[in-house]
Nucleic acid binder design. Sequence first.
DNA 1: CGAACAATTAACCAACTAGTTAAAACCATG
DNA 2: CATGGTTTTAACTAGTTGGTTAATTGTTCG
Lengths: 239, 239
Amino acid sequence: MGTADRVARAVTPAHRNGRPAGELRGRDPERTRGRILDAATREFARYGLGGARVDRIAASAGANKRMLYYYFGDKDALFQEVLEHAYESIRSAEQELNLLDVDPVGGMARLIAFTWHYYIAHPEFLTLLNSENLHRGRHLRGSRRIRTTNSPLIATLDEILARGARAGTFRPGVDSLQLYISIAGLSYFYLSNNHTLSAVFGRELSGAEARAERLAHMTDVIIGYLTNTGPAPRPLRSE
Amino acid sequence: MGTADRVARAVTPAHRNGRPAGELRGRDPERTRGRILDAATREFARYGLGGARVDRIAASAGANKRMLYYYFGDKDALFQEVLEHAYESIRSAEQELNLLDVDPVGGMARLIAFTWHYYIAHPEFLTLLNSENLHRGRHLRGSRRIRTTNSPLIATLDEILARGARAGTFRPGVDSLQLYISIAGLSYFYLSNNHTLSAVFGRELSGAEARAERLAHMTDVIIGYLTNTGPAPRPLRSE
DNA sequence: CGAACAATTAACCAACTAGTTAAAACCATG
DNA sequence: CATGGTTTTAACTAGTTGGTTAATTGTTCG
């Protein structure tokens, strides 16, 4: 494979002006590039980075394989762009949550439900992250696009926690990043490991009813934890 | 690849009696098989099913590649055995937890800590499960060894929850499987997605201190949820 | 129009991959 | 020590893989 050039050539042709809207005959580099990125997303999500095949991506995109290298450099660089794009999508969706418009409990419930439904609507996000972690974050570490997309969600979460604590409904001293990881993990694990879980425990987990139950449970866990303002039942943090 | 024969030949040679303990020169089918299984576990855990290379497994096991096919059939069957073995290992470790020897809160904390430390000590378990889920549980579904290994942990968890509810320390009506998935998910997501999380949020998550923090947080979440016996703060299960 | 450049194509390739063949080495037993 | 099954080896193969070459087609603009 090799890290290779990673040229990518910053293609955003200046001639995007005078193109007739309906007329999509002939060449259209932007569309070609987009179709390859979409096809690559599907392929990487389904087979992982190691199992993905560039020939299949090209065929699925309806493009010549050479175009993949022309626009993206190599397989790894293509995967990196797919990843970056996936992150930008979820960040963009998070923007529209407006969690501070409602009370702390409501905001928290909304965040949980959003995370849950986003993962369901974008299963590729889960498997792409799994692939990237299998490769030890190699592609993300070399990406500046990711660092700049740094989630403002943590700051919002901080504010919700502060408001809730001030009002006395939430316990104080909660680490917002830990909480975010917990909220994400509750959804992520259930959905990402759906197959092994239902195989091992012999219970249907992907039906609408099971999913509604799961969302209710996760919400109970997080809200129940946050609103438990009494003293810890016992400090056995040993073991 | 193909599902192929899956012969495997049930090898447990009858001549394991008169072998001199120190003398391990020459042939030893049981050891060869074991070394291949170990090497395969490492390889699959590191590269995933798609990225794993049978030549590398054979080399790492110090065995001829042919032996891999001789003992296991093909790559998929080998992966299946690796998976089954991984499950049996964790089930076996769970057996020794004796969660019913302590009070409900202590038992719950012990389960959380066990899960956490087991995942840390056996990172291959996480990545193997990820691989299997990427392949939609294909290997587990065709395994009878897994179904018979069905975890008695859920039953134990049920008992702990019942005791806690009876004593008034735990809230009633908690689904033990949901809770187990939550406990596992809180650890799993943090550890499995360690690389992407720390890349995105720019925070060290794999150091000893960070890990201690995480365990404390997860314990707080679960115990805090269970011991919150008051009424739900608001029934906004809509959205 | 026609030169310069961008986008696209078909054919190609060397390395690699899972899996196989067939023979050889080993080992317990009679 | 011969026999017959088990374990191991080296060499091989057919198909696949990521990536490349070099020529061609379309597009822009002077």
